[in-house]
Amino acid sequence: MTERQIRLFGDPVLRSVCDPVVLGSRGVTDLVDDLLETVAVPGRAGLAANQIGVSSRAFSYNVDGVIGYILNPVLAEVQGEPELVDEGCLSVPGFFFPRLRYPFARVTGVDLDGNPVELSGDGLMGQALQHETDHLDGHLYIEGLQPEVKREAMRAIRESPWY
């Protein structure tokens, strides 16, 4: 297992729709190991494969002390009225902006053995499930910001030392 470097805003891999994972294919186990190792760093709630440069439909999560992964996730359900929540992203380091998210989300997919996996939750877990599936569809959280907040976010990002 290896903690992998996080790709930052501006990297084209973050804007591409990720390919489905082919179970049993070479490297899938290593990808899952790397996702788990990289998300285990304190302060990280989730990590999509494209954030470590791999355009595969997989993500890991680290919420309330529970670390896991899912392959080929599909956002199956959201519930409630969208609420403004402060959201950040490992690919946009150092920033948090208010973003509308549904309070509950459910994702379905599989594990390495092809067994069905269902993840669901509210609060941080619900937010992470929506955020990570967005990544796998080539979307960054800043795209969903209110227009005036998005302008502020883009200005701040352009002025950041890592950009």
Rank of each mutant, 00 (worst) to 15 (best):
Glu3Gln: 15
Arg4Pro: 14
Arg7Ala: 03
Leu8Gln: 05
Pro12Trp: 14
Arg15Leu: 01
Ser16Glu: 14
Pro20Arg: 04
Val21Tyr: 05
Gly24Thr: 08
Leu31Val: 01
Leu36Ser: 10
Thr38Gln: 00
Ala40Cys: 07
Ala40Trp: 05
Ala45Gly: 12
Ala45Gln: 14
Gly46Trp: 05
Ala48Ile: 02
Ala49Asp: 01
Ala49Phe: 02
Gln51Tyr: 09
Gly53Trp: 10
Ser55Ala: 13
Ser56Glu: 03
Ser56Lys: 02
Ala58Tyr: 08
Ser60Tyr: 03
Asp64Gln: 15
Gly65Gln: 09
Val66Pro: 01
Gly68Gln: 01
Ile70Phe: 03
Leu71Met: 13
Leu71Phe: 11
Glu77Ser: 13
Gly80His: 15
Gly80Asn: 10
Pro82Leu: 06
Leu84Cys: 01
Asp86His: 13
Asp86Asn: 15
Phe97Leu: 15
Arg101Gln: 05
Tyr102Pro: 08
Val107Ser: 07
Thr108Val: 14
Gly109Ser: 03
Gly114Lys: 15
Asn115Arg: 14
Pro116Met: 14
Val117Tyr: 08
Val117Gln: 08
Glu118Leu: 13
Leu119Tyr: 00
Gly121Ser: 10
Leu124Phe: 15
Leu124Asp: 13
Leu129Tyr: 13
Gln130Ile: 01
Leu140Trp: 04
Tyr141Arg: 07
Ile142Pro: 00
Gly144Lys: 07
Val149Tyr: 04
Glu152Lys: 15
Ala153Lys: 09
Ala156Asn: 13
Ala156Glu: 04
Ile157His: 09
Ile157Gly: 05
Ile157Asp: 04
Arg158Lys: 13
Ser160Ile: 02
Trp162Phe: 12
Trp162Ser: 11
